[in-house]
Amino acid sequence: MLAIGLIFGRLFHQPMAEFLPFLSLGLVIWGTIGASLGEGAITFVGAEGYIKQFPFPKAVYIFRALVSMHVVFLTGLIIYFFVALSYGKFNLLGIVFSLPGVLFFVLTNFAHVVICAHLGAKFRDVPHMISAAFQVLFYVTPVMYTVEMLKSRHLDFIYLFNPFYYMIEIIRRPMLQGVMPGWDVYLPALGYAVFVLAFAAFIVKKLSNRIVYVL
């Protein structure tokens, strides 16, 4: 993280005190989104030995994956706090302001895991597709570069229609700037959360009973 930060900070001519906290927080959030899709897709496949042997509700395996990826998320946040502290950017109020964002974030990840777990069990090529697609998404989501860099080059559309950008912003903006994000960020994030949750409910209804048969 430090190496990436130093190299890209120079490349983009960014002040390190701004860029390093920005980047480290972005990477932590991005990594968790990635886990919710990637690890999500192998949740049922990986638990095959249990699913075929014990009659537990499928939710057990979902939450197992969800908890572990958010433990990693919290660990990452601690690293961010150190980075922020060392640049004097640590903002306690910002953390409080980010809490609603964290809630939506976890809900969205939950839906991701549910959807990917079912699809990944039914279609075994889904995990590979996700990891390939996610690499591309990394380059079109403002994780490494800031929104200002895009704006100045008239590339706004890259983030405006990207749900992952809003998932990141509802946590990153309050934590970095100590302000409550506006509705322009919350609404898309919330809309996306509702959408994936509804889709997850649909998937569960369609596939849940068939999971043990497709494993």
């Binding site: 095959e48 030995g49 249990y50 075929k52 042997q53 014990f54 009659p55």
Partner: peptide, 11 residues
């Protein structure tokens, strides 16, 4: 229910 189906998985 105590199912005992296979012993080689679920570790």
């Amino acid at each position: 229910v105590c199912p005992m189906f296979e012993f080689a998985t679920g570790f």
